[in-house]
């Protein structure tokens, strides 16, 4: 564990907290993409299958990972519940039209071609990594469709992007300190994912500087 990894994880937790705060305080999920949330649910449930096989008390890191995995899975499920049941009437279904089946299919094909080992567990893990790298696209697409972005929604995406950026620093750190060399899959997909956020960052920082609400072109 290093400071970049811990900082990244904490930003991830903050982003989830912001998302739930936004829904709870405004009693609305307007501006949020249910499709992105569903993709994250698929990502977490295919990646964290090791929850069933790993003893949480194996080490301090395993314990930490287990807590975080359960947190991500449950908050993700809760968000989907809020969007689909409690605040369903505020959900912007008309604009949330990104075709996620293509993303899922592409991630599945890539995972079948590129994986670390030929096991079901490893292929599902690779699938989750590929899918996570593009999971934010429906959300960005929805923001572009509707034009204006609520502050809290932009903070949410900003935190998610920050979390990804810190993970890159974490990988560089581990490359040199632990000589981890076989993580090309996570590194490559993580970099693609961070680049997708970079475009959003640009407009986010521009809107901060001008003290205006964020508007995507």
């Amino acid at each position: 564990m290093n400071i970049f990894r811990l900082g990244g994880d904490m930003l991830h937790v903050v982003s989830i907290f912001l998302l739930l705060l936004k829904i709870q305080t405004s009693h609305s999920c307007a501006g949020l993409s249910l499709k992105t949330q569903i993709l994250y649910m698929v990502v977490f449930s295919t990646r964290y299958l090791d929850l069933f096989f790993t003893k949480p008390w194996h080490s301090a890191l395993t314990f930490y990972n287990t807590i975080m995995k359960i947190l991500f899975l449950s908050s993700s499920a809760y968000t989907i519940y809020l969007m689909q049941k409690r605040y369903k009437h505020t959900y912007d279904k008309v604009h949330d039209t990104f075709r996620i089946q293509y993303l899922i299919a592409a991630a599945a094909v890539l995972a079948l071609i590129f994986h670390l080992r030929l096991t079901v567990f490893e292929i599902l893990w690779a699938f989750s990594v590929f899918l996570e790298s593009v999971a934010i696209l429906p959300q960005l697409f929805l923001l572009q469709e509707t034009g204006e972005v609520e502050n809290i929604t932009s903070h949410y995406i900003f935190c998610l992007g920050g979390y990804r950026t810190l993970y890159i620093f974490n990988w560089v750190w581990r490359y040199f300190t632990e000589h981890r060399r076989n993580q090309w899959l996570a590194w490559g997909c993580g970099t693609v994912q961070t680049l997708i956020y970079a475009d959003f960052f640009y407009y986010y920082i521009l809107s901060r500087k001008q003290g205006k609400k964020l508007r995507l072109p």
Partner: peptide, 10 residues
């Protein structure tokens, strides 16, 4: 080699 060692991140 233990594959869980490879996936110690979130």
């Amino acid at each position: 080699e233990d594959s869980s060692e490879d996936h110690d991140e979130l």
